[in-house]
Every structure is written in C-alpha cells, then in structure tokens.
C-alpha cells in the first residue's frame, strides 16, 4: 500500500496544496481519518492496546524548548502505535530532540548566520554535532531551532526543490525570498492540519541578480517577517537587544562576526540548552555561500561568585 503523502502537489512539491488544504479543512475529516493501512494493523494486532489518550489532537504539550523527560510521553507513543482501528490520527504534540536559537544579521556584503550544533533530548545534551544551518539553494542558507527531525524533513524538501533546478539546468534558481515564501506556506499548511513542523526557521541569502541581502524568519504556525537582524527562541530575548543596538546594514565582515560572537557568548552563558560549539554561515554576492567548521568561543567562568558561590551567604554550607 502506498504511504499517503500530505497534500503533495505534483509540481510545487509537498505540503503546498492550496485549494486542497481548504477543502480538507472544510470537511473537518482530519479529526477522524480512518486508518486504512491494514498491514499496519496486522503488524500490531498482537500488541497490548494501551488506553487511548482521551486528549483531542490539539490538546497537547506546551511549545517549550526544554521538554523534560516525561514517562507519559512513552505511554503517548504507545497510544499512537497501538491505536485501534478507527481511532483519531495523532500528530506531533511536542518536540523530542531540539535545537536552540539561530541568530542572523545583515552586513555590508550579505548575511551572516550562527547557531550551536547541539541536538538536546529534553535537558540531555544528546547529539553534539548536528548541523542546524544548511544550504537550501545556491545563495540561500536555512537555519532552524526546534525539533531536529522535522528540520531534517524540511531540509529534504529543500534539497528536492534545489535538485530540480540543478537537473533542469536552465539558469533558473531559487532566490532567498522564494525559499522563504515556500517555507512559510509549508509551515502554515501544516499548522492548518494541526500537525505542525515544530521549528522556528531563519532564511538568509543574497539575490544573485541584484546583490540584495535577504533575511527572514518563520515560526511553526506561520508567523513570519523579514528584518535586518533576526533570532529564534531564546535569541529573540538575549541576542536581539544587542543587535538592535549594534547591527548596521553597512557593517564590515569583521564587525559582523564580532557582533555575532558576542551574541553567541551571551546565549551560551544564559541558555542551559546550548553548547560551546558553533558554526557560522555566510552568504555574500562575491564569494557565495560558506558554512564554517565548528568552533568554540573563549569563556570566563572564574568570577568570584562562581568560584565561591556561598562566600557572602554566611551560615550556609
């Protein structure tokens, strides 16, 4: 039996159906899609049926980046895998392996984007070399915070899109703002199905024809905007105030790099779900697109209060 792809438009790619999305939501049938995969049922017919979760598909966990390990989650998984025929479909309700902030700024030659390489399982530093900044088109980088597996699925969509351009070899390539527009529709259409891709995305790049730099961001429910500097997650609180003060569109590469490192350092000090292993990606009109090798920043933990935390708290141990 064919797996059913979600609204795969034959020409525009997956998750882009426009009218179809409305038709589906009009029928409201997505709450009670019958399971038709009999092979799937057979494979699970001997399994012990866990009690079906009483929660509706949209009564779900909070969108927090630091989901604690939750034994309930396993029961929830069992409820999905062992759901009896005719049970409502279940969707992503909270992230498992997550990436934290992505930071990006415009500068004189183009854009610069930074993130750490951690994939955290709740509070566990589970994967330490995950690339969360990937090339999406000849002059476009996409960075992501949130669920890593969802981002890897998004990367696959983008790779397919770009491969199509490469295969045709007709001089038509995706521009940053096209990638951005596409991703907005993907994110928004998935939220319409109550099956979100649990990510905050950053799209940055340079239009090859005009040399114009582009920077935009999109959340998992489709809230999107463009600006001279963007940051996802904690970065919005920790890094953007720095950007507001110091970022200029005409700053040099050295200045831009110094600003990003300063912001990364602040994020690393304050965000417990981050590690001191970063990558920086740049897109410029002259030298194209680069994502650096992972590097560390110097840090200072020798402050008196860190070394002697109880020094001024007399009577404590």
């Amino acid at each position: 039996m064919q797996p059913s792809l979600p609204s795969h438009h034959p020409l525009l790619g997956p998750d882009t159906a426009i009218l179809a999305a409305q038709q589906q939501s009009a029928s409201a049938s997505f709450f009670h899609n019958q399971r038709t995969n009999t092979a799937h049922q057979d494979a699970n017919s001997n399994a012990v049926l866990a009690p079906a979760s009483g929660a509706m598909p949209f009564t779900v966990a909070p969108p927090q980046a630091h989901a604690p390990f939750d034994a309930g989650a396993l029961a929830f998984d069992a409820a999905i895998t062992n759901a009896p025929p005719g049970a409502p479909n279940k969707h992503t309700t909270y992230p498992y392996v997550t990436g934290t902030s992505v930071l990006a700024i415009k500068y004189k030659d183009g854009i610069m984007m930074a993130a750490d390489t951690l994939g955290a399982y709740g509070a566990t530093k589970r994967y330490k070399s995950i690339s969360r900044i990937v090339p999406a088109a000849p002059t476009t980088l996409v960075g992501a915070g949130g669920e890593i597996s969802d981002f890897q699925y998004i990367s696959k969509l983008l790779t397919e899109l770009n491969d199509n351009d490469v295969i045709r070899d007709d001089g038509v390539v995706l521009k940053p703002r096209e990638v951005f527009a596409y991703l907005q529709r993907v994110m928004y259409n998935r939220r319409n199905k109550f099956d979100p891709l649990w990510n905050s995305l950053v799209v940055g790049g340079v239009d090859q024809a005009t040399g114009e730099a582009f920077l935009g961001t999109c959340s998992m429910i489709g809230v999107s905007y463009t600006d001279s500097h963007v940051a996802t997650g904690f970065g919005n609180h920790l890094a953007r105030p720095l950007f507001r003060n110091e970022q200029r569109d005409d700053m040099t590469e050295q200045e831009a790099r110094a600003l990003l490192e300063k912001a990364l350092r602040v994020c690393y000090y304050r965000d417990k779900n981050s590690i001191n292993k970063f990558v920086i990606g740049t897109v410029t009109k002259e030298s194209g697109m680069k994502v650096s090798e992972p590097f560390s920043l110097s840090t200072e933990w020798g402050y008196d209060a860190f070394v002697h935390p109880t020094k001024h708290a007399l009577g404590s141990w």
């Binding site: 438009h9 525009l12 426009i18 521009k175 703002r177 096209e178 527009a181 596409y182 529709r185």
Partner: peptide, 12 residues
Amino acid sequence: LNHRFVYESPLA
C-alpha cells in the same frame, strides 16, 4: 498563479 502563491515570484 499557483507559483506566485507559493513562491511570491513569477514562474519562469
């Protein structure tokens, strides 16, 4: 129209 809707750019 579909291309414009998804990519906000004219179809080549």
